[in-house]
C-alpha cells in the first residue's frame, strides 16, 4: 500500500513557544488515521499545516507525492478539509453555501447537479436547503461542513475535531457517514479527536502530547491486556512526564 500522507519532522513555533517538536508519521491510502491528544497537544496545528492553511516552519509534509509547501495547488486539489470551528457562511443558506464551494472548486453544471443530489441524500439536508446555515443545529452544521468539504471529490479527508459540540446521536450519524465514505469510495481519512470512544473507530492512531508524537500504532496492538484506550493513553503521558523529570 502506498503512503498518501507523509509527514516528516514537522516543527512549528508560535513566538517563542515550540508547538510542534518534530512530528513524523505517515498514513496509508484508504485508512482511517486518528490523531489523538489532549487540548494544546498540537493536533490542529499539524492538520492545518498539512492542509496548507498554515506555514510550515521546518520539516516536510507530502500529500499524494506532492510537497505541501512547494506544490500547494496540486496537494490542495487532493484534499477536503473540515476545520474545527464551524466555518461556513452563516448568513448564506445551505444551498448557497454548497453552490459557493462548488464554484470555488469549478464543479460545473451537470456534474454539480448530481453532486448536490448525492450530498443532500447523504447528509439528509435536502429539506433545509433554504435555511441560513447559521440557523442549523450544531450537528447539521457539521454535516453541511462535511458536505462542502466533499464537493471536490477529495481522495483525502482531513477533519479537525469533527464532532466537538455535537449531540451523541448526530455524532453517531456523522461517523456512519465517514465510515461509509471510507468503505465505499476508499477515501483516506485523517481525523483529530480528543474523544476516546471515537479513537476506537480508527484503524491506526497517533498519540500526540505537547508537540511530540508519543506512539503510532494499530489500534489492536495497543489494546492488549484488556486495558481501555484511555488507560493506555494516560500511562503513556505519565511516562513522558517522568522522562522529562529525569
Amino acid at each position: 500500500m502506498s503512503q498518501i500522507i507523509e509527514i516528516n519532522s514537522l516543527i512549528k513555533y508560535f513566538g517563542p513557544v515550540q508547538a510542534l517538536k518534530g512530528v513524523t508519521f505517515s498514513v496509508e491510502e484508504g485508512e482511517i488515521f486518528g490523531l489523538v491528544g489532549p487540548d494544546g497537544a498540537g493536533k490542529t496545528t499539524t492538520v492545518r499545516m498539512l492542509a496548507g492553511v498554515m506555514d510550515i516552519d521546518s520539516g516536510t509534509a507530502m500529500l499524494g507525492g506532492f510537497d505541501v509547501k512547494q506544490q500547494s495547488e496540486q496537494s490542495k486539489a487532493l484534499i477536503g478539509y473540515m476545520p474545527q470551528r464551524f466555518s461556513l457562511y452563516g448568513d448564506l443558506t445551505v444551498e448557497e453555501n454548497l453552490d459557493f464551494f462548488a464554484d470555488l472548486y469549478d464543479v460545473r453544471a451537470q456534474e454539480r447537479v448530481e453532486m448536490k443530489r448525492e450530498l443532500y441524500s447523504f447528509s439528509r439536508l435536502e429539506k433545509f436547503r433554504k435555511r441560513p446555515a447559521g440557523k442549523l443545529s450544531g450537528g447539521m452544521q457539521k454535516k453541511l461542513a462535511l458536505a462542502c468539504a466533499l464537493i471536490n471529490v477529495p481522495k483525502v479527508l482531513i477533519l479537525d475535531e469533527p464532532t466537538i459540540g455535537v449531540d451523541p446521536l448526530s455524532r453517531q450519524e456523522l461517523w456512519e457517514m465517514l465510515l461509509k465514505l471510507n468503505k465505499e469510495k476508499g477515501v483516506t481519512i485523517l481525523v483529530t479527536t480528543s474523544y476516546m470512544d471515537e479513537v476506537e473507530r480508527c484503524g491506526r492512531v497517533g498519540l500526540l502530547f505537547e508537540g511530540t508524537l508519543l506512539k503510532v500504532a494499530k489500534l489492536e496492538s495497543i489494546l492488549t491486556g484488556g486495558k481501555r484506550f484511555e488507560e493506555i493513553f494516560i500511562s503513556e503521558m505519565e511516562k513522558q512526564k517522568n522522562m522529562k523529570r529525569l
Binding site: A51, V53, A77, Y81, R85, S87, Y89, F101, L104, Y105
Partner: peptide, 13 residues
C-alpha cells in the same frame, strides 16, 4: 472571525 477564511485558503482560490 468566523473561520471561513480557512475554507477560502484551502480552496484553489
Amino acid at each position: 472571525e468566523s473561520g471561513t477564511i480557512e475554507q477560502l485558503i484551502v480552496s484553489p482560490l
